[in-house]
């Protein structure tokens, strides 16, 4: 139920819900880009396992985009009825995924430094 100064007859007058879904989609696209970059770099360094990890990250990015569309439809009801719309499980999962991906990128790059 819209609160504050919004017209109660209009659901989500500020388009907060749509903007959040688009933010999820942009994040998915970013994950795909980093995954592809990691896969390409790993193939050049002949590290097939890391290349597969990069591809898996790209798949997770694509799944994130699909999930965001499910989240969009599932959140309509809680928004309308005024219930909580937070999703700690999804947020935690994406947080952990990003930590893991950035750590893999870091250690892959450390391993391939020309300093050694």
């Amino acid at each position: 139920m819209p609160r504050g100064g919004a017209d109660p007859k209009i659901l989500d007058a500020g388009l907060q819900h749509e903007r959040t879904t688009l933010a999820w989609e942009r994040t998915g696209i970013s994950a795909i880009v980093v995954g592809v970059l990691l896969a390409r770099s790993a193939v050049e360094a002949s590290q097939q396992l890391i290349a597969l990890t990069g591809l898996a990250a790209a798949v997770v990015g694509a799944l994130m985009m699909l999930w965001s569309s499910l989240l969009y439809s599932n959140r309509m009801e809680p928004i309308e009825s005024g219930f909580d719309v937070s999703h700690p499980g999804g947020t935690r999962a994406i947080g952990r995924f990003t930590v893991l991906l950035t750590a893999i990128c870091f250690f892959f790059s450390v391993q391939n430094l020309s300093w050694w």
Binding site: G4, Q16, H17, T20, P78, F83, D84, V85, S86
Partner: peptide
């Protein structure tokens, strides 16, 4: 449970 707009802004 807060206003959903705050939750979504935080997300």
């Amino acid at each position: 449970d807060p206003d959903y707009r705050f939750t979504l802004a935080n997300e």
